[in-house]
Amino acid sequence: MTKCFALLLCLFVLPALAQEEIHVGVELQPYQPYSDVENGEYRGYARDLLDAFAAEHGYRFVYMPLPVRRLLGDFLSGRVDLKFPDHPQWNADQKAGHDINYSAPAAPYVDGILVKPQHLGQGQQRIELLGTQNGFTPWPYLPDIRAGKIRLIQANQIDSLLRMASSDRVDAVYLNPRVVAHQLRQMRMAADSLVFDPELPHVEDHYYLSSIHHPQLIEAFNRFLEERAELVREIRRRHGL
């Protein structure tokens, strides 16, 4: 009986959702190859993935690029229906009391330390000033930051952080190596200006799609990721992921 009811619910609710605009809250900041916004147009891996899902299910997605902090507030208050990227670990205190539905993993990522090549393999002890982007949490280094052993410097733009690291104004940056590689090309800097140190603590995880009020859409997205796995892999390959 329960399975029949769930099936009937999907048959009625999903077509209804497909008739309305679904507002997708996304990050305004440049973060290629995952995403960026150019002339008001959201683009990148996330856009292609979500568009492919929407096309197959008849959804009308309207992308709402927002600063990171405002994006979270608009999501929790219901001003946007979906949020990407998201993660259960992010902003846990602010999310407390909200019943948030997370998708299956939608995009792999690595966050870690990048240094100038001559500092590769020199260990964590040389890092006193660590740069990262506003909205980022360098999880593996929080104990040392809270203990005052590492001072965190944050900036809005990744290119600013890369220039700071290249000119020794910070000892290292905590970012996504793929994003850094893309940004170095955009800045016409040498590909090895900053290199990822895999021996230092880093995070290997995934980004998720989330929703508070549309759990059935998240379930449909999960089925899409599973049933259209080859298409998802092709989109990832296209964007170098």
Rank of each mutant, 00 (worst) to 15 (best):
K116M: 13
P88N: 02
D111Y: 06
D93H: 09
S103N: 14
H87M: 06
Q89S: 15
V110L: 04
G123C: 02
N101A: 14
P117Y: 01
D93I: 14
L120I: 12
R126H: 00
N101Q: 14
I113T: 04
I100H: 01
H119P: 03
P108T: 00
H119C: 09
N91H: 14
H98C: 12
D111I: 01
A107W: 10
Q89M: 15
I100G: 07
Q122T: 06
A96G: 05
Q94I: 12
Q89T: 14
D93E: 14
H87L: 12
A96I: 09
R126Y: 00
Q118W: 00
A96N: 08
P88A: 00
I113G: 01
D99E: 12
L114W: 05
P88T: 04
D99Q: 15
I100V: 09
P117D: 08
Q94A: 15
Q118A: 14
R126L: 09
A92F: 10
A106N: 07
G97L: 13
D93R: 10
Q125P: 08
A104P: 00
Q118P: 07
G97S: 10
D111K: 00
H98D: 14
Q125Y: 01
Q122C: 07
H119W: 07
K95G: 07
Y109F: 15
Q125G: 12
D99Y: 04
I100P: 10
A106T: 10
I113L: 05
N101D: 14
Q122L: 10
P88R: 02
P108Y: 02
P108G: 01
P105R: 02
Q122M: 10
G123P: 03
A107R: 05
P88W: 11
G121S: 04
D93W: 10
V115Y: 00
D99T: 13
G97F: 00
N91L: 15
N91K: 07
N101P: 11
Q125I: 03
K95A: 11
Q118R: 06
V115K: 04
H98N: 15
S103Q: 13
Q122A: 08
K116W: 04
H98G: 13
A92T: 10
K95N: 11
H119E: 07
I100Y: 04
P117S: 03
I100C: 08
A92I: 13
A107K: 06
L114N: 06
V110T: 15
Q125F: 02
